[in-house]
């Protein structure tokens, strides 16, 4: 991808990156602070929420989060 094209799509990329980072970091903080999960362990969830875009944090909050 050349630089001009990247510049053209920057207004799209910035909000998407912000959204992913916001979700990922919220989920990561939650993973580290509450180490009780329905299944899996801390390392697994930390990797999933940071590396799987959008679906990772959503899956963690929907299925992985244990009851405090």
């Amino acid at each position: 991808m050349d630089l001009a094209m990247l510049k053209e799509y920057l207004p799209f990329l910035i909000p998407l990156v912000i959204a992913q980072l916001a979700l990922g970091i919220t989920a990561l903080v939650h993973v580290l602070r509450y180490p009780h999960y329905r299944f899996g362990n801390k390392v697994m969830w930390a990797i999933i929420v940071m590396l799987v875009q959008f679906i990772g944090p959503a899956a963690y909050f929907a299925f992985g989060r244990g009851n405090e």
Binding site: F54, P57, F61
Partner: peptide, 12 residues
């Protein structure tokens, strides 16, 4: 975090 997920999914 249900509100957050809903908003993020629809924003994306």
């Amino acid at each position: 975090y249900k509100l957050l997920i809903m908003l993020m999914v629809f924003a994306v």
